[in-house]
Design a protein around this nucleic acid. Structure first.
Lengths: 241, 241
DNA sequence: AGCGTAATAAGTCGGAGTAAATAAATCGAG
DNA sequence: CTCGATTTATTTACTCCGACTTATTACGCT
């Protein structure tokens, strides 16, 4: 009766993943401020009840994402926000683990408002039949499940991913992986205030039709409306707290 | 006489950093194809002449960047390109370690062509006096050193960073960190073919003036020209190989 | 064909020793 | 005696090692 009640730290695929989640969340949410020093390996590892190996591997992950920097004697310090890989999917997930910062949400939607309409333009130029089919399929799933359910949100994300893939630009797809994850979280928060403001499907259809028709200008404009509406809804849901 | 001639692997700030560089470069450049399995920890660590700990920490870094995934019994496999964090500064650096792939360069410039003009728009709206000063300083350094020298390229990057910072959008700044690093490499390759096609400073001045004047449309247009020209020069330098 | 079992490779552990970076202490020159 | 440079000492991360554990796949048995 002396070996239970341990491992109360955050969940993660592996032990070091759990530690990385725990520390990453603490840093990104501001619990540990930039410039601050983490306590030493030995102390911190013991405090979290993990071996030094696991703790160190977790810190390497944070280092790889630009959250911390560690040097002998100086210890491990949290880097300034400007050096964080803010678009890394995991970093974004940590940022949205707790109540998301409104500034981050605003920045991300601003980026979406720049990238996604332009992506829709490219998609309208380069889409193949398979791309249109993927978009239509995702759309059908969205209509069936609605955004209030998890499968519906997955379908929404799949819709945006299909557009990104249609651009034939790997960099845009990679960007989507980060933003898409965050969008997933924001829509989740959005639905929490269950106003369900309006049906998002018609606007999605307009985007899909424009891309399928190869109408560059219409695709741009329709996507612009879509992002703007999503931002409005998210903002409304957040100030309601 | 039995302990020299070791550690011939790639350079890096630390031992695990060197291993991460080596493996990361091998993966990103396609030497190890997606889906392929890395040899086991013990074997690979011994082959690289490092301890298992150092090797494992390097693999954690690659995992954090989405390059590999490792599970017990199954081993460590290279993930498909779509799961890579292509915008991660280190991943980009690895991609440009050897002769850069033309497709990647095209994708990145396409992304720049989308993001940077939009960023210039925002900068024109939100810039403060300090931002304009930073841009002018970088511009002066560019004129003094030219893009043929390293300080000149640093100044060029500083110029673009100043614009990004003026947008007051952390996500845009983070994106710039990745793209900026890549741009640094492409301009380096560009200058290798020492044609020095034309003076880039006047175009930079046009951008700076438009942002300083708060002229949104002019800033957008001038930046569009700038990115387009940079792409032309880079493409010309690359096909000349 | 389904189920249990064994082999395999990553995951975790603890401890020992090394290297690097900072702070302190010492020495020398003015 | 004060200031400066150099050496020493300490702190902390870094590297290494070897054993043990856990998860997963694949094989073999029923």
């Amino acid at each position: 009766m002396e070996e239970q009640a341990r491992k109360p730290r955050g969940t993660g695929r592996r032990l070091r993943g759990a530690v990385a989640n725990y520390l990453g969340t603490a840093i990104v949410t501001g619990e540990i401020a930039p410039g601050e020093r983490l306590s030493g390996e030995v102390a911190n590892a013991e405090a979290l009840d993990v071996s030094r190996s696991a703790y160190r591997e977790a810190v390497q992950v944070l280092t790889a994402k630009g959250l911390v920097e560690s040097r002998p004697k100086a210890g491990t310090r949290v880097l300034p926000r400007s050096r964080w890989n803010l678009l890394d999917p995991e970093v974004l997930a940590w940022a949205f683990a707790k109540e998301p910062d409104m500034n981050v949400v605003r920045d991300l939607f601003e980026l979406r408002a720049i990238v996604e309409p332009a992506a829709a333009r490219l998609a309208a130029e380069r889409r193949e039949k398979a791309d249109v089919k993927a978009m239509r399929d995702a759309l059908a799933a969205m209509r069936r499940f609605t955004l209030a359910t998890e499968p519906g949100r997955i379908a929404d994300r799949e819709f945006h991913d299909a557009i990104l893939r249609a651009t034939r630009n790997d960099a845009l797809v990679a960007l989507s992986a980060g933003i898409g994850a965050a969008v997933n979280w924001t829509t989740q928060y959005k639905q929490r205030a269950r106003a369900l403001p309006r049906d998002p499907v018609p606007d999605h259809i307009r985007v899909a039709d424009a891309i399928a028709a190869g109408d560059v200008e219409a695709a741009d404009k329709a996507m612009r409306v879509l992002v703007e509406m999503a931002f409005d809804d998210t903002r409304a849901a957040m100030v309601r707290d």
